[in-house]
Design a protein around this nucleic acid. Structure first.
Lengths: 205, 205
DNA sequence: ATGTAAATTTACTAATCGGTATACTTTCGA
DNA sequence: TCGAAAGTATACCGATTAGTAAATTTACAT
């Protein structure tokens, strides 16, 4: 077999992801992706049968990468829950400050394809967000927070809202406001949770 | 002048808004908009010089309509702040349950055009969101909530997050979670605000 | 070396896109 | 009634789109 097909495939997925995340789906052409991946459009179609299939594969690959990244991110913040929340939102603010930031690739693509409920990309995005929210809930539970699933969802809502509003306004103040709200929600949980004041303790559950 | 140009213009704006909100910007063609507005593409270009200009005009018109709608919505909920929050999120849930719901037209378009920071549509969307957030803050302040601006922003974050996540998951449970979080944030404010327990009172500020 | 399957290229559709040249209607003022 | 401006329609343009036919190159097994 000439050239390594697997490496080419990876190169395509990488190039396509950059394009899709930056400029969405419709406005990126297969010619552009091919050019960015340094091959011809016909070769692109050798590896992926259609643009939709390519998008699906891109999101599938990115899903696993993002899960892994979130894992190491969580490990790095083994301290208090407050520190974890601060880390989450400050990382979000830094991320959003990047010059050509265009939001979460998953959210962006789902919203662009919002009128196509059967599109495979939407299924993957849905699974992706669920997994992340679930892992975040597990982290909170391990840190001893009572009602972790509920709190995780609420903080997740704040985070998604911050992404949307930072895209609209280009103002990272929304990440800070979200962080403040998240910590107040956490403290409310601690005060009322049957498990007690677990937020600041170092112990696991 | 033959036919009423103003009526035609309005018909175009209406048809274009439906299309843009439902399917975004790129994937809607001028031919489709013309057809939906029951005229030819050439006539469309007589009224609007370009697709970008049409989008701008559509958002401009929709901005005023949405502001007015929010006004009456707020008037209808003159009672307690809790009731106002419940009303906000339950209205959101009902809205999101509509069969071909595709999120806020403004947010959707901003996200689709996230890589074009100079696009006029983004300026309008930005002004739109600011106005709504500001009016919501005013309502809260009038109801006697301390730190109304901060709380308004936090609830706004929850609301935008709920829109995103409901689009991803098609599950209105996110609106309910957002409502719960919003009310907990409100109660936290009441407990800690210097102005005191204003949330349940009927008095103004 | 050489056959062969895998991988890549050049060159091409047919359709659709935003936008336009130009001629035709409609309506009102004179 | 009739000229002229306002508004609409027919028919087109060049560019771009996703996708394809067919020939060509590469690498490895024999």
């Amino acid at each position: 077999m000439p050239r390594d097909a697997n490496k080419t495939r990876k190169r395509i997925l990488e190039a396509a992801y950059v394009q899709f995340r930056r400029r969405g789906y419709s406005r990126v052409s297969m010619d552009e992706i091919a050019s960015a991946a340094r091959l011809t459009k016909r070769s692109l179609y050798y590896h992926f049968v259609s643009k939709d299939a390519l998008l699906t594969a891109v999101l599938e690959a990115q899903h696993h990468l993002a899960i892994a990244a979130f894992q190491t991110f969580g490990d790095r913040l083994a301290g208090s829950v407050e520190a974890m929340i601060d880390g989450l939102f400050s990382e979000l603010a830094v991320w959003a400050d990047k010059p050509r930031w265009a939001g979460s690739g998953f959210t962006r693509l789902v919203i662009e394809l919002a009128d196509l409920p059967g599109h495979p990309a939407r299924l993957i995005a849905r699974r992706h967000k669920s997994t992340l929210e679930g892992q975040f809930a597990d982290r909170l539970a391990k840190a001893g927070v009572g009602g972790a699933r509920e709190l995780a969802r609420e903080i997740w809502l704040l985070s998604e809202g911050a992404i949307s509003l930072m895209l609209v306004h280009g103002d990272r103040a929304y990440a800070e406001a979200a962080a403040r709200a998240a910590k107040r929600l956490l403290n409310g949980k601690i005060a009322s949770a049957p498990g007690g004041r677990a937020g600041r303790s170092r112990r696991g559950p």
